[in-house]
Amino acid sequence: MTGLPEEQSASIIPIEVLTREATWRRLAELARRTDRPPREVEDAALALNERVEPAWRSIDDELAALVYDSDQDPQALENVRSLSSSTRRLTFQAPELLLEVEITLGRPRTLVCQVVPPQPAVLEVRLESGILSSETDSFGTFHVPSVPPGPFSLRCSPLGQAEGYSERAGPVATSWVRI
C-alpha cells in the first residue's frame, strides 16, 4: 500500500483504506466523467448572445421583477386543486408600473396581461422562437390567444401617460419566467 503514489491509489485501493482526500478525488473524477451538462444546454447558453436581438436588452429598460407567482403560493395551489382548468398568475413590478399576467394552462395556453395603472402600451412577448408584438387596448389589456411552453419575458412600452399621471412611464422588461 505504502509504495503507491496518492494519485493512483484512489482508483485501486480498497474502500476500507480510502483516505478523505482519496474519497474526494474519486467523487470529483466521477462527477466530471459522468455528469457534465448536456450539449444542448451548453449550446443554448452559448447562443443566447447571438439569438437575442439587441433591442431586447436595451439598457434603458427598467427591469420588472417577478413579485408574485401563484406557482410559489401554497394558498393558491390549494385552490387550484379543486378547479378543472388551472391558471397561473404572475405579477411583475417596475418602479412606475405593474404587469399582471394570467396564463390559462389549457390547449392552447392563453396569456392575458394587464398594465397597472391602466394605460395604452406596446407589449412584446419575447419567446425562444421570436417576439409577438401588439398594442394593448386603451385600458392596458393585452391578450395572446396561444403561447408555447418555455421561457418568456414581456417588454412593455407605454404609449401615453396613465390617468392622473403627468408623465409617460419608460419602457419596462420583465425577468424571464418559464411557463
Binding site: 451538462p37 448536456p38 444546454v41 447558453a45 448572445n49 439598457i59 427591469l63 425577468s175 424571464w176
Partner: peptide
C-alpha cells in the same frame, strides 16, 4: 434530475444575459 437541471441552467444564463448591462 437532468431535465430540471437543464431548465435551471438555461434560466440562470438567461437571467445573466438580461442582467448583463446592469
Amino acid at each position: 434530475d437532468n431535465c430540471d437541471a437543464a431548465d435551471v441552467t438555461q434560466t440562470t444564463w438567461m437571467r445573466l444575459h438580461e442582467q448583463l448591462p446592469r
